[in-house]
Write a protein that binds this DNA or RNA. Sequence first.
DNA 1: TTGTAGGCGTTATCAG
DNA 2: CTGATAACGCCTACAA
Lengths: 329, 329
Amino acid sequence: MNIREIAKKADVSIATVSRVLNSSENVSSATREKVLEILRKYEFEMDPWAKRLASKRNKTHLFIMVSRRILKFLDLESNEFYSTVINGTRNTADMNRSVTEIVEMESNLDEEKLKGVDGVLLVGGDTTAEHVRFFKKIGMPLVLVDQYIPTVKVDCIVSNGYDGASYAVKYLISRGLKKIVHIHGFLNHFGFKDRYDGYKATMEQNNLLPKTYEYNDEVMEDMKPLIDKMFNVYGVPEAIFASNDLIAMKAIETLRSFHIRVPEDISVIGFDGIEKGKYFTPPLSTLKVPMREMGSLALKRLLDIVYDQDVYPVRISLFTEFIKRGSSV
Amino acid sequence: MNIREIAKKADVSIATVSRVLNSSENVSSATREKVLEILRKYEFEMDPWAKRLASKRNKTHLFIMVSRRILKFLDLESNEFYSTVINGTRNTADMNRSVTEIVEMESNLDEEKLKGVDGVLLVGGDTTAEHVRFFKKIGMPLVLVDQYIPTVKVDCIVSNGYDGASYAVKYLISRGLKKIVHIHGFLNHFGFKDRYDGYKATMEQNNLLPKTYEYNDEVMEDMKPLIDKMFNVYGVPEAIFASNDLIAMKAIETLRSFHIRVPEDISVIGFDGIEKGKYFTPPLSTLKVPMREMGSLALKRLLDIVYDQDVYPVRISLFTEFIKRGSSV
DNA sequence: TTGTAGGCGTTATCAG
DNA sequence: CTGATAACGCCTACAA
């Protein structure tokens, strides 16, 4: 059943059917009703591929929204993770006749600014339920990138931090290490929370005591007090698993000031797999998140939502890959 | 950059470019090389939507593979969950010029039987890493339905049991109940394991003691001994959260034989949201899994893998929805 | 072995 | 307000 058949049955042209389908204005209500009835009767569902192929004539207009904090880092090109993710989306956008615009995620969102925007990507762990509710209310197609909010049913793309962390812990245990601590960022960022949960659960499954330390990675604060406290209360660990590569590298630097050798005294494993880690001394062991794929997938999913009908919201998790380098045994 | 432009640059027809792209035999190696070079030079990427639209002329041939156990239940139409999921996939297949065939998942898989098959859906919690490895080895596009295996990177569609379970527990707690036990099926089925983890974590977060009982739902064994043991050792709980609706209903029936009233004495919440639960006495509170969407999404994802290039494997989780009915306060 | 041409189902332009 | 028709990018008989 395609619109040609529908047109025949409704005794109108396919152009008219298309207009009804796209709720264009220029259709008399009589004609519209007639077509709608046939549509319902035959339970017509449009072919999304044909729709998009045909739609290629005009560009899809998408917003990539990021918090001021991340945006600042993006400009400085010092946030390799989000830079790479966003490169992935822009690249995919180019191949899909979509034009993207990077926009700051303000606290007071304005419906006016979204005129002509077909869909929105909300990038980063800063995204809150309130942000999501705003876009849902105005019916704007929406995908969260690197953030998941259990209480709001909205599409999102995240990395599988739970299993990645679990893998890291199991790996360290298999190398004979038992005193493994976790240094993590703020847990309202789902990525960090997920890795935290994976670390904790896996430690417990192996009858080891989880020990976690929160570190403010947003300002990259001095880590000496944290390490100091760790050494004094918990003792010197055999391994540190960090929320991400930047925290891991900060930890290694700090340990160095304590005259601790990595990996001889302490193994360190990060998360994300940014390039910088490869050239760090020692090269950083890490769990690699496919950043470009994350961005690319987010964009594709957003287009699915923009063009298809009745897309059920899902959470998409990307597998991570352990990369053994010099910072761990 | 489309194949027409490539054809022009390579000084061949678009048909020839298409043949090269689809590694058809009927191209001289000289021509093929020439085309491949241009393809590489311009980093050509095919438009998947156009490809699929055009491909609609011939049908995609897909296998839906299920274990003998599930297949048996399917025939008896007593396994509403998988029946509905598979209906969802077949429905979506119809709308996508795909022909599906339900095939029993044998232990000794045969490559011969897969001749002419474009992709495979592996349905059910019985799927093992070995199964997956077999298909990956022969390069067969593959999607797991209702099963996730952390150790193998393969596409899969599951329900978000963790958050569903978590929601159920929090709900019961909010109703003033504290003695909440969990009756679950075998934990090698990811769906059950996920719900189990969600139950356990949420209980602990609320400083409540998790208490779990394993029940063999595959043979629907007598539940009296289990309940008996529960009452004797743990005492009478205030609520039971079950791995799925069938287990929940079995529990309610068994409780009845103990002269326990539901929900007055014990609240019971299931999982899945099968129709049967709606007409049960008392009507079953449950977490509804969008079963048709699960099947539909699995098929769409499989087609993505069959037709697109370089698809990075992902896990897709479907949100669940709490449905309050008579079996719980 | 290669090219020509007619779809695939929808959108959008341009007449009427 | 409605209809004809040329795209969109690719595939594949069928012809050469």
